[in-house]
Design a protein around this nucleic acid. Structure first.
Lengths: 160, 160
DNA sequence: TATTGTTATACTCTATAACTATA
DNA sequence: TATAGTTATAGAGTATAACAATA
């Protein structure tokens, strides 16, 4: 396969600028390009909202998924995140090392662990959710009534 | 600064799945999460559309920008892309090595190069634009009249 | 002094492939 | 045989910092 893909997050800590005097040509008409710019902007809001928590988007997703699906296996967690098992392991190690989640033995299957949030993990998830949702609302303040809802629906349709 | 950011492109060559039976909790309500899923889907369409051209999103952007702004410097190109000068250099080397763009001396400033597409670069840009626009139209076919336009506008508003 | 291009280096995230234990 | 977890390794893309040449 070609030179492909990578992560989840923008490259710098500043929004991608619209440089005055530069002709953006077809880029201005491409969903893909605006998607990228929007993603950088939203990442910055996310980063600001989770300041001090050492959270990244994949970590956030992993913690939320484990919280909502106690006993989930590493392999399935990787499947949900769209990453390889080895990546799910590193994420799980990260949660485990910090006392946010633990691996419990399964009586039914000796191969797989069941992942569970600790009390500390539960607290962190509550804090993260509160902050991230607040950041989204703040960023959506520029939208008129219903526009946030409509954007969400259009994005889901596009990703389908 | 924390452990931060990275690129432009999704991690795998498959869309992020919605795994049946898994509770996605708050993720379903977050613009940031849907943005990520949409971006992966659009990247796959982009990748498919540019098959055989060895093109990635940053290369596409660089070629389009040089094409529309002949004589642009590497530093400004990096500014438009939102990457460091060293990255703009690697991109320029890539274009130069393949005979797609060339560095020309500037009479007014001995420090900076002026970047220009070659005839071959011009042809590639035409081909890329055609294919990528067709892919976007194909992907937007699921949208009702005006929805693509509305999505573009909402994304721009979000990124502002 | 400031800026452009350049080079070397390090870092992050991810994939791949091989290994083991269990099914 | 197949699957879960694990480990080691490699790759892509980016940033940072230093340097020479020019402004």
């Amino acid at each position: 396969m070609s030179s492909l893909p990578s992560p989840h997050r923008p490259r710098t800590l500043a929004p991608i600028p619209y440089v005055a005097g530069v002709d953006y040509d077809v880029l201005d008409e491409l969903i893909g390009y605006s998607l990228r710019r929007a993603q950088v902007a939203m990442f910055l809001a996310f980063h600001e909202a989770t300041r001090g928590l050492e959270i990244t988007p994949p970590r956030f997703t992993a913690l939320v998924i484990v919280g909502a699906n106690p006993g989930i296996s590493q392999t399935l967690l990787g499947g949900v995140l769209g990453i390889a098992r080895s990546g799910a392991m590193m994420l799980t190690d990260w949660m485990d090392d910090r006392g946010l989640a633990e691996r419990r033995q399964r009586p039914d299957d000796g191969r797989a662990w069941g992942l569970h949030l600790t009390a500390r993990g539960e607290r962190l998830v509550r804090t993260m959710k509160r902050r991230v949702l607040a950041a989204e609302r703040r960023r959506s303040a520029r939208f008129g009534s219903g526009e946030r809802r409509r954007l969400l629906a259009l994005l889901k349709k596009l990703a389908q």
